[in-house]
Write a protein that binds this DNA or RNA. Structure first.
Length: 527
DNA sequence: CGCATGTTGAAACA
DNA sequence: TGTTTCAACATGCG
């Protein structure tokens, strides 16, 4: 036997997973370690104002600051390095004589490529690499394996794969109070500046307006607070939530941005929910329950990680090839809260200001931009959400956009959200609109959902002339939604025909000879 | 093949 | 408040 190896010097690379709790990769880094260097790399690939809005960047910086102070409290530190990971990491691992590199598994496209390169370079330098799954409840590969090697494309199938995979792993135990520090013979930093940067340093001039603050401490407090109302947790049903609720608080937990950055662990959330459900025997169930929301996240992560070209229409096997219009004016109006529909524009204003909207509100604006009214590609809307949302998460965002545009997962394209009545149903008085579109604050409730119908005298009294202070509607919803549905039908038919013309001749024959549709038969039978 | 189902529609009815 | 219909889809199961 060879003599016992020298205790390792570890480099721990934070990316997502900006937390100390439930962090198995960090456990691997500190195990028997002589020294451990936790770093975060400010990758210029991400950090561009045109790619990431100020609210999310600010959320990230707050999360880093919180992480840094938690690490310091345990005798460690967080070194925030500047540059491309492929360049920065090898430099510091040489400088610090690192023998072990640890990071959390990330299934995003860019991350997979980046991590493969880093892993190869590290192994080339004789460094041991350890990478654990802790961003999701499951390893997405396990879910696919339980579904014959393919990602589940419906919730039912996903549920089956999940139950075949068994319950998710328990959260990793809490870390020791004292973590290995730096090598005592050398300084913490190889770089001069390892502080959390300011927004200005990253090129952001805007002031973040989101009311939500990043960080693990904030996340744990929010989780505890949200789950303390056990009756509310047990009764939670997403489709029944109020998308217009915002004061004093929205209808959901707002844990999504914390899950996105890994400030909160999905497994801790899962475990905490199970505790509430154990106590409250009568509770809602997935997919609509609070637990269901967490499972949808897994659903999209599995689909994204194992579908080629998932983030685009072209070459994406699960995405319907729909002939979207390239209408730059419509798209700009939608993005800039100028559609003339207060419900749509107020939601988009909330996106700009808060970086967050209720899930159902996202449905409304996504449907409006794509199959409902403007017939603009979901990819365009996805990019806007991706930039502005504080919880912008690639897998979930693209997935939901495909869902809402009836490009994948969901196909009932004739179910179109009304940009007038949908919001009114929840917010009779229009308080949501008044708050996010102050130009309409004095518009009477009778007209606030359709201000173009207000008589000129009312517009004058409200200090809001339609067409001058606030735009007239850019489309006639009743007319364009009909056209959109017809185009969707044509796109579906074209796809069906192109896909496999001889797939089922019997079906084809029957369709041609249609006298009464199955639905009519059913209705007749019911009578 | 036939049928039920699909996290979250709207409008027109009763 | 619930049911039916509307431009009626896709998918999975037996």
């Amino acid at each position: 036997m060879s003599p016992a190896p020298a205790p390792p010097t570890s480099l721990f690379w934070f990316r997502k997973g900006l937390r100390l709790h439930d962090n198995p990769s960090l456990w691997a880094a500190i195990k028997d370690a002589h020294a451990c260097y936790p770093v975060f790399v400010l990758d210029p690939w991400f950090l561009k104002p045109e790619r990431v809005g100020v609210n999310r960047i600010n959320f990230l910086l707050q999360s880093l600051a919180d992480l840094r102070s938690s690490l310091k409290a345990r005798g460690s530190n967080l070194l925030v390095l500047r540059g491309e990971p492929q360049e920065v990491l090898p430099r510091v691992w040489k400088e610090w004589q690192v023998t072990r590199l640890c990071f959390e598994v990330d299934t995003e496209e860019y991350a997979k490529e980046r991590d493969a390169k880093i892993r190869a370079a590290a192994e080339e330098d004789g460094i041991e690499v350890i990478s654990c799954v802790s961003h999701t409840l499951y390893n997405t590969e396990d879910i696919c394996a339980k579904n014959g090697g393919r990602p589940p494309l419906s919730y039912k199938v996903f549920e089956k794969a999940m139950s075949a995979a068994g319950p998710p792993a328990a959260p990793a135990p809490d870390l020791p109070d004292k973590l290995p520090g730096h090598d005592p013979t050398r300084k913490w930093a190889a770089d001069k500046d390892t502080n959390v940067p300011s927004l200005k340093e990253l090129g952001y001039d805007e002031v973040p307006q989101t009311p939500f603050k990043g960080g693990e401490s904030e996340a744990l407090a929010r989780l505890a607070e949200q789950l303390s109302d056990k009756a509310w947790v047990a009764a939670f049903e997403k489709p029944k939530g109020d998308p217009a609720a915002f004061d004093p608080k929205p209808a959901t937990t707002i844990l999504s941005p914390y899950l996105k950055f890994g400030c909160i662990s999905a497994r801790l959330f899962y475990e905490s929910l199970q505790q509430v459900y154990k106590e409250k025997k009568q509770h809602t169930k997935p997919p609509v329950s609070l637990l269901g929301q967490l499972l949808w996240r897994e659903f999209y992560y599995a689909a994204a990680a194992h579908t080629p070209n998932y983030h685009q229409k072209e070459g994406n096997p699960i995405c319907k090839q729909i002939d979207w219009d390239d209408n730059a004016e419509f798209f700009k109006a939608w993005e800039e809260c100028r559609t003339g529909f207060p419900w749509i524009d107020a939601i988009m204003a909330q996106l700009h200001q808060w970086g967050w909207m209720h899930h159902l509100a996202r449905h409304c604006v996504a449907c409006f931009l794509t199959r409902g009214d403007l017939y603009v590609s979901w990819e365009k809307g996805r990019d806007v959400f991706d930039r502005l949302l504080i919880d912008g998460d690639a897998a979930i965002n693209s997935g939901n956009w495909m869902w809402l545009s009836a490009s994948a997962f969901f196909y009932q394209y004739f179910r179109v959200y009304s940009p007038v009545t949908y919001g009114k149903k929840y917010d009779k008085n229009g308080d949501f609109v008044r708050h996010f579109l102050p130009v309409l604050k004095d518009m009477p409730a009778q007209y606030i959902w359709e201000p173009w119908k207000a008589p000129m005298k009312v517009q004058e009294q409200a200090n809001c002339i339609i067409g001058k202070d606030y735009p007239a509607p850019i489309v006639d919803h009743a007319a364009v939604s009909k056209q959109c549905i017809a185009r969707m039908k044509a796109a579906y038919d074209a796809e069906k025909a192109g896909q496999n013309p001889s797939a089922s001749p019997a079906k084809r024959k029957k369709g041609a000879a249609e006298e009464d549709t199955p639905r009519k038969k059913k209705a007749a039978a019911a009578k």
